[in-house]
C-alpha cells in the first residue's frame, strides 16, 4: 500500500489552478486527527513548491510526493498540530 492509499484524507485538486490546491489544504487539513496524513492530487505545477512551503509556514510535516495511477502527482502532508 502506498502512503497515498493510507491517507486519512484525499483531496482531488486535479484541474485547479494555483493557489486553489493550497487553499483546499488550508481549509480541510483539520478534518484528519493530529498524526494523520492528507494526500493532495494536483495538476498545478506550483503545488510542488507551494505545498512544502505551506507545511513550513504552518508548522506541518511534508512527507513527500507520489504519483497517482493516472500520472498526476500526489503530495503527502502529515498533520502535526
Amino acid at each position: 500500500m502506498t502512503a497515498a492509499e493510507g491517507a486519512a484524507l484525499e483531496l482531488d485538486c486535479r484541474g485547479q489552478r494555483c493557489p486553489l490546491p493550497v487553499i483546499e489544504l488550508g481549509r480541510r487539513h483539520t478534518e484528519v486527527p493530529v498524526g494523520g496524513t492528507i494526500a493532495v492530487a494536483s495538476t498545478d505545477v506550483a503545488a510542488r513548491v507551494d505545498i512544502p512551503a505551506w507545511c513550513r509556514m504552518r508548522g506541518q510535516e511534508y512527507v513527500g510526493e507520489e504519483t497517482a495511477p493516472d500520472g498526476v502527482p500526489v503530495f503527502l502532508v502529515r498533520r502535526s498540530r
Binding site: 489552478r17 494555483c18 493557489p19 493550497v22 498545478d44 505545477v45 506550483a46 513548491v49 507551494d50 512544502p52 512551503a53 505551506w54 509556514m57
Partner: peptide, 20 residues
C-alpha cells in the same frame, strides 16, 4: 497566476519559497 504562463516564477521555485 499573474504571469503569461501558468508556471510559477522559476526564481521563487528555485528558492523553495511560496510562489503564490
Amino acid at each position: 497566476c499573474t504571469a503569461s504562463t501558468l508556471a510559477p516564477s522559476h526564481v521563487l521555485e528555485a528558492m523553495g519559497v511560496l510562489t503564490h
